[in-house]
Write a protein that binds this DNA or RNA. Structure first.
Lengths: 195, 195
DNA sequence: GGCGGGTGAGAACGGTCGTTCTCACTTCCT
DNA sequence: AGGAAGTGAGAACGACCGTTCTCACCCGCC
């Protein structure tokens, strides 16, 4: 399968470059030389840069969410602990060398106004992430709003960690998540619906 | 003072274009024609595009934080209510036409890896915002961690509202903030330090 | 053995962008 | 009145980027 091999090498190079430097700062020629593929082949697999960007985002979305789910599933069995494990995973991610925030938020800021495909990819990624947390929250017996709250905390932690180049927002968010989980567990559900 | 007038017109045009379309998507010529100024004058006030971008971010930072502080100061007197009013202000901001998320997060994603000035501006903006919330939290008698938690909620709400083009994250975040404020008010402070 | 179709390497093209230059014109000082 | 200095409008320049084209080369098939 050298067909898929070249495609993978292209996407690997594109992902590394696009994520590290931003999409618009990376030319197709940089992707070509980083992937060791000829320019003709590059355009054979991805007829335009937009196609490459979209494929980059799509693949990263799947990989990112799979890595999170795998970690969480292996870290805890109680749903509440799984919710907290999400923030452990974030902490590890933030500490990785080259961490530069959420690729989808970055791409959205760069191209969201111009490219509907990028905007849709970002929206889809965030929707899936929110749905995952909502699912964990439901399994934990927490009210649906709690899933939303934890999603916002995680989102904020990602942005804060990126801009400050510091992984501590993950533990801050986890602390807040713990408080929210305890608070909503102790509170009557009606209080969350009304106001 | 037509000196400052031209400068203001340039910055107004730059802010509108940069925020709406992203920095790299907007050429100096677009700023020129939108501001009605000649290209020579443009480069007279801002010797390079980097200078213009930096001035855009600096001015927006001041204006944004001043608008927030003004609203909050006028909306409530009790510090706890002021903390909650922050999210009311966010809701209004999110609902404005043309809202496209945080200019600093967007610029950071686009240029943070390339331009130290942009990265520093984003960091400064977020630090000041966090300091403001920390100040309100302290005035409300909440533990310092609560300021951090609310900052993360606000940050997450901004990103979520931008990507989903929907202002409801502001009320979601406000609901979570209310829970956190109530929870930490009822809890012994030692529990927040320990774990 | 020759030949057509695909491949590699890179030059070439059209467009854009940041920045500077030209040049005619005005204005203001002496 | 005359010239120096600055201005407006836009052309020009050099670099880059996305995309396509050229051309020599190689492979499998009649």
């Amino acid at each position: 399968m050298e067909h898929d091999d070249a495609r993978t090498r292209i996407l690997d190079a594109a992902e590394e470059l696009f994520y590290a430097q931003g999409v618009q700062s990376v030319g197709m020629d940089a992707v070509r030389s980083a992937s060791g593929v000829t320019l003709r082949r590059l355009y054979q697999y991805f007829p335009s840069k937009d196609d490459l960007v979209e494929a980059y985002l799509l693949r990263r979305d799947g990989r990112w969410r799979a890595a999170l789910a795998t970690y969480v599933a292996g870290a805890a069995v109680a749903p509440k602990d799984q919710l907290l494990a999400v923030f452990d995973w974030l902490a590890r991610w933030f500490a990785e060398p080259g961490f530069r925030g959420c690729a989808f938020v970055n791409s959205f800021g760069e191209l969201g106004a111009t490219s509907p495909a990028v905007a849709a990819a970002a929206r889809h990624h965030k929707e899936e992430f929110a749905a995952y947390l909502a699912c964990l929250a439901e399994a934990a017996g927490a009210p649906p709003a709690t899933g939303v709250h934890l999603t916002l905390l995680a989102e904020g932690a990602i942005t804060a960690a990126a801009i400050h180049a510091d992984p501590t927002p993950a533990t801050d968010a986890q602390q807040a998540a713990r408080l929210l989980l305890d608070a909503t567990a102790a509170l009557p559900a009606a209080l969350l619906r009304g106001e």
